[in-house]
């Protein structure tokens, strides 16, 4: 199952400056594990204590995974997974 992952600017140093990468996986968590094998260090930027990091937004197509099944959200061939760091502060 091929999924296109859109990489934000801040994580591109880990993906050799690639803006999108194609990954195989049937759940968001699998995609992140596979990315971490190819681009070590990326998982710790996205996942904390088994959940998506509070200030990292992950979307499958246009849907925020917080309102689906989080990292267990299932994927279909051709889906686009977008990672965007939240813009937040105090």
């Amino acid at each position: 199952m091929s999924i296109t992952v859109i990489i934000p600017t801040i994580l591109r140093p880990l993906t050799h400056q690639q803006k999108h990468i194609d990954m195989e996986g049937s759940r968001v968590s699998e995609i992140i594990d596979h990315m971490d094998q190819q681009y070590p260090g990326i998982k710790e930027k996205l996942v904390a204590n088994g959940n998506a990091h509070r200030f990292i937004n992950i979307y499958v197509n246009d849907n925020d995974i917080r309102f689906q099944d989080g990292l267990a959200t299932s994927l279909r061939d051709g889906d686009v997974l977008t990672i965007l760091p939240a813009v937040a502060g105090g």
Partner: peptide
């Protein structure tokens, strides 16, 4: 202008859905 989902006097966070569309 972005919606501040925190609606706080000492914190802000862009509405994630609006952020995706704008980005």
């Amino acid at each position: 202008p972005m919606r501040n989902v925190a609606q706080s006097e000492n914190f802000f966070m862009f509405d994630p859905q609006q952020q995706l569309q704008v980005w």
